[in-house]
C-alpha cells in the first residue's frame, strides 16, 4: 500500500518562498498522505489612499509552486453595487494568499453588502464594511481564510480609506499597505516614498536632531506612478509576481479600472 499512496499530483513547491507542507517521503517508514486544505497561489497586492481617492493594485499571475496556473486571475474585487457587474459599487477588496479562500471571502462580503442595501435602502459605508470583514475573518479563526486582505473605499468625509487585515481579522486603517508574496519587497519602498521614512530635511545640520520629512497626502498621478514602479520592481525580484497589473482607483464618482501588462518571465 505504501507504493500506492505515494502517488501525488506533481505540484512541488519552491522551497524558498513559503513553508512546505510536511510530505513524509523520507526515512523509510510507511508513507502517509494527509490532506492539507491550503495552498499558496502567490501574487502581490498593494493599496494607497489619498485625500480624495484610494488606489488598490494587484498583479494577475496565479501560481502553484513553480507553475504559472494562469496569467490572468484578478485579485481585486468590487464589493456591493447592482447585480453581478457591481454597478455603482464604491468598495474594493483585494485578497492574496490561498485563492479559493479569497474567492469565498469575496463572495461572502459581497453578499453581506448587497443584503445591507436591500434591507436598509442605502449603501454600506467603508467603515462598516471594514468592521464586518474583520468579523467574517475572526469568526473563522480556527479554520481561517488563508488570505491577506486589503479593503479600500471613500469614507463619509470623502477621504480615501484603506484597511488592511491579517488572516484572522485583526485590522487597522492605514495610508498604505503591501501584501502577498512581494510584500517584503514593496512595503519598505512604500514606507520610504509614501510615509517618507528615513527621509530628512536636506538642508538641516547632521545629528540626532535632524528633522524627519513630514508625509503629505499624494496626488493621484504620483500614486499611480509609485504603484507601477513598485510592481515592475517586484516582478524583477520575485518569481510569483508578474503577467499583468490590475489597478482600481476609487473616487467619489465610482471605480475606475486600469490594466497594464507586466513581464511574463
Amino acid at each position: 500500500m505504501a507504493a500506492l499512496s505515494s502517488y501525488s499530483m506533481p505540484t512541488e513547491q519552491p522551497a524558498f518562498s513559503f513553508q512546505n507542507q510536511p510530505q513524509s517521503h523520507a526515512s523509510g517508514g510507511p508513507t502517509q498522505h494527509s490532506f492539507y486544505p491550503y495552498t499558496d497561489n502567490g501574487g502581490s497586492t498593494l493599496g494607497i489612499s489619498g485625500s480624495s481617492f484610494t488606489i488598490i493594485a494587484g498583479d494577475t499571475r496565479m501560481t502553484s509552486g513553480y507553475n504559472i496556473l494562469t496569467r490572468y486571475a484578478p485579485k481585486l474585487f468590487r464589493i456591493g453595487g447592482e447585480g453581478p457587474e457591481h454597478a455603482g459599487a464604491k468598495i474594493v477588496l483585494s485578497v492574496v494568499g490561498f485563492a479559493a479562500d479569497g474567492q469565498a471571502l469575496q463572495e461572502r462580503l459581497d453578499m453581506v453588502v448587497k443584503m445591507y442595501r436591500y434591507q436598509h435602502g442605502k449603501d454600506m459605508s467603508v467603515h462598516a464594511c471594514a468592521q464586518r470583514l474583520s468579523h467574517i475573518l475572526y469568526n473563522k479563526r480556527f479554520f481561517p481564510y488563508y488570505v491577506q486582505a486589503i479593503l479600500g473605499g471613500i469614507d463619509e468625509e470623502g477621504v480615501g480609506a484603506l484597511y488592511s487585515y491579517d488572516p484572522v481579522g485583526s485590522y487597522e486603517r492605514e495610508q498604505c499597505r503591501a501584501a502577498g508574496a512581494a510584500a517584503s519587497l514593496i512595503m519598505p519602498f512604500l514606507d520610504n516614498q509614501v510615509n517618507l521614512k528615513n527621509q530628512y530635511e536636506p538642508d538641516a545640520p547632521q545629528g540626532l536632531e535632524k528633522p524627519q520629512l513630514q508625509p503629505q497626502p499624494l496626488d493621484r498621478q504620483t500614486v499611480e506612478e509609485l504603484v507601477r514602479d513598485a510592481f515592475t520592481s517586484a516582478v524583477e525580484r520575485h518569481i510569483e509576481v508578474g503577467d499583468g497589473l490590475q489597478m482600481m482607483v476609487i473616487t467619489k464618482d465610482g471605480i475606475e479600472e486600469l490594466y497594464s501588462p507586466l513581464k511574463q518571465d
Binding site: L69, A99, Q103
Partner: peptide, 11 residues
C-alpha cells in the same frame, strides 16, 4: 480538490 479555480485560454 482545494476548490481553487482559474481560467485561461489553455489549461
Amino acid at each position: 480538490l482545494l476548490g481553487t479555480t482559474y481560467s485561461a485560454p489553455t489549461l
